Amino acid sequence: MIKKFLFSTLIALCSISAVNAQSKVKETNKLEDPDNLASQYFSQVMGVAVDATSNLKLYKFIYEWIGTPYRFGGNTQKGIDCSAFTKAIYDKVFNTTILRNSRDIFSMVNPLPKDELKEGDLVFFKIKSRSITHIGIYLGDNRFAHASSSRGVVISNLNEPYYSRYFYKGGRILDSVKDELIEE
């Protein structure tokens, strides 16, 4: 009777050990997965929750441009403005050609309120003007990447008083615009 009990206990302990070993292997594989490491890295560096569903190409592109100085009319890493930065993202990350000016880009979107924005959507601002003067790309968690005239390419929060004050609308590129690009 005691032998049966000890044998049963030993089998139970071995089963538990095997399950723990499998979960450690899965966790190790998860930690060593390059996409998961990239997600963790961008989450920490950019202060944005990057997960498995996120577009890592988008975050990698933005990371490579962070700190690029602002230059009106610029479109290189020596200096870039907000619409050129957004255009470059759409060209390189989404394989979509958009217009060069923030007001013109707004004509290519389906306007959205702030609470319906998804990663990759656009955010538009009317800064001390009646017309759109600034654009960025939404990343999630109220954060967006843009070329700030005072700080260059940065990630900011839509809830910061400055951006909250001047936020106009969000927008998602219209399917008809994407369809036109496919036909060309």
Rank of each mutant, 00 (worst) to 15 (best):
K57V: 09
G47Y: 05
K92S: 08
L117D: 02
I66K: 02
K118W: 08
T86D: 00
R103M: 11
D33L: 05
D51Q: 05
A38N: 05
V45K: 13
Q22P: 08
L56G: 09
M108W: 05
R71S: 12
F72N: 15
E27C: 02
K114I: 13
A49I: 11
S83F: 05
E119S: 12
F106S: 05
K118M: 12
G47P: 13
D81H: 14
L31M: 14
D121V: 14
K87G: 06
S39G: 09
Q77P: 14
V50T: 07
V50P: 10
G79D: 06
S107Y: 10
A49D: 11
K60M: 01
G47Q: 03
T28S: 10
D35Y: 04
N29K: 15
N55W: 01
Q44P: 12
T76W: 07
F94S: 08
Q22M: 08
G47S: 05
S83R: 07
D91G: 03
C82I: 08
N101T: 15
N95K: 14
N95G: 06
N55T: 07
A38R: 10
V45W: 01
S23A: 12
K60Q: 07
R71E: 08
L37I: 10
Y41G: 01
K24W: 04
P113A: 00
S107H: 13
V93F: 02
A88R: 12
Y41K: 11
L37Y: 06
T68K: 10
Y90V: 05
N110T: 11
P113T: 12
Q44C: 03
P113L: 00
T53Q: 09
D35V: 05
I89L: 02
S39F: 01
Q77S: 07
E116F: 11
E116S: 15
S23T: 15
D104W: 07
I80S: 02
G74I: 13
N101P: 11
I105Q: 10
